[in-house]
Amino acid sequence: MDEKYPIGQYSLIGKVTADQRRAWISQIEQLPKRLRESVAGLQGSELQTPYRTGGWSIIQVVHHIADSHMNSYIRFKLALTEETPTIRPYYEDRFAELPDSVDADIDPSLILITQLHKKWVTLLESLTEEDFQKAFYHPESKETLHLDYTLGHYAWHGNHHVAHILAARERMDQ
């Protein structure tokens, strides 16, 4: 297994179908529960365990998901309300080194992710085919990203990080 990409890298081939979008929305909806289950019972040094050599700790991964998904939710709203807005990138690696990510209790981020995903799913379920074709411009990658592509990316993103945590737990149990 690739420790950096335990479920592989995100890739999208072909046109996104309504069935695929529904599956991705379901994954976004289920992420808070899956994330909670993945960290259940972990404490102290276990939460400080890196998910891989040179990687973030489990605490940092949980807080990163909150930071990342908040940014994505706002990007969706910008794309829905503006004409291909240019979004503001952020330094996720620097965010992960701030005190609220390094050693802070994960419960606030777990609660935030739960509530954010409720709002996000409500929004996603209301979108039309036309809405999913709206886009934003990412100045760092110099790409225009459509919301249907971005939806898939964030469904993958949550699964990707839960897999990191589960792999770290498996290593701890050996």
Rank of each mutant, 00 (worst) to 15 (best):
V61K: 10
V61Q: 07
V62N: 09
V62W: 06
V62S: 07
H63P: 01
H63F: 06
H64C: 12
H64L: 13
H64T: 02
H64G: 11
H64P: 03
I65E: 02
I65M: 14
I65Q: 02
I65Y: 00
A66L: 12
A66K: 12
A66F: 04
A66E: 13
D67I: 03
S68I: 06
S68R: 04
H69A: 02
H69M: 04
M70Q: 13
M70L: 13
M70C: 10
N71M: 02
N71F: 01
N71T: 05
N71A: 12
S72R: 04
S72W: 01
Y73F: 15
Y73I: 00
Y73D: 08
Y73P: 04
I74M: 12
I74W: 08
I74G: 07
R75Y: 04
R75D: 03
R75M: 03
R75F: 06
F76Y: 12
F76W: 08
K77A: 07
K77D: 06
L78H: 04
L78I: 02
L78P: 00
L78D: 01
L78R: 14
A79R: 03
A79C: 04
L80C: 06
L80F: 00
T81S: 15
E82M: 14
E82W: 06
E82V: 03
T84S: 09
T84F: 01
T84D: 01
T84Y: 01
T84G: 01
P85N: 12
P85E: 10
P85K: 08
T86I: 05
T86F: 05
I87V: 15
I87M: 07
R88V: 08
R88Q: 15
R88P: 00
Y90R: 00
Y90M: 03
Y91I: 06
Y91G: 06
E92A: 14
E92I: 05
E92C: 07
E92P: 01
D93A: 14
R94K: 14
R94E: 15
R94S: 13
F95Y: 15
F95E: 09
F95M: 07
A96M: 08
E97C: 03
E97A: 15
E97R: 11
E97W: 00
L98T: 14
L98N: 03
L98K: 10
D100A: 12
D100M: 12
D100H: 14
S101I: 00
S101D: 09
S101C: 14
S101V: 00
S101P: 00
V102T: 15
V102M: 13
V102C: 09
V102G: 04
V102H: 01
D103L: 07
D105P: 00
D105E: 12
D105S: 15
I106N: 05
I106M: 05
I106Q: 11
I106K: 02
D107I: 11
P108W: 11
P108K: 09
S109Y: 05
S109H: 02
L110C: 03
L110S: 04
I111K: 10
I111M: 05
I113C: 04
T114W: 01
T114E: 15
T114F: 05
Q115N: 14
Q115R: 11
Q115W: 03
Q115T: 08
Q115C: 03
L116D: 08
L116A: 06
L116V: 05
L116G: 04
H117V: 09
H117Q: 13
K118G: 01
K118T: 10
K119E: 13
K119S: 14
W120M: 05
W120T: 09
W120E: 01
